[in-house]
């Protein structure tokens, strides 16, 4: 995973900046819906596609991407066996893709299908 350090560096910072407002919004949104049951939460997402579903999707996409590149730095730092490092990079990307896809699909399903 060497080379192209700068692309990585910029991506990490831009996603970090984007996550600041999204994470603050998410915390406040969750706090104000703390007492909701499942149906009410689904309605909250499905009923506000622009103000809830889309920010939520952005949070998931950017969050998982940021997590993946952050994890990549940690793996590069601490793992000393090149083979193991390669495998962990693969696993890292795989987990981020699968978890991100499931979360994104859930929002699409709640908003457009359910």
């Amino acid at each position: 995973m060497a080379k192209h350090g700068t692309t990585h560096f910029i991506a990490q910072r831009i996603t970090a900046l984007a996550l600041v407002p999204l994470a603050i919004w998410f915390v406040f949104a969750l706090l104000s819906h703390g007492g909701d049951n499942r149906a009410e939460l689904m309605e909250w997402i499905a009923g506000h596609p622009w103000s809830v579903a889309i920010p939520l999707a952005l949070l998931i996409l950017i969050g998982f991407y940021h997590m993946r590149i952050g994890m990549e730095v940690i793996i590069d730092d601490y793992i000393h066996k090149p083979d193991l490092r390669g495998w962990l990079h693969f696993l890292n990307t795989f987990v981020a893709l699968v978890a991100g896809a499931i979360a994104l699909w859930s929002i699409i399903a709640i908003t457009l299908i359910a």
Binding site: M1, A2, K3, H4, G5, T6, H8, F9, D76, D77
Partner: peptide, 11 residues
């Protein structure tokens, strides 16, 4: 220098 290791290991 544009490399994850050569430069960007500086934390």
């Amino acid at each position: 220098l544009d490399d994850n290791f050569r430069l960007y290991r500086c934390h």
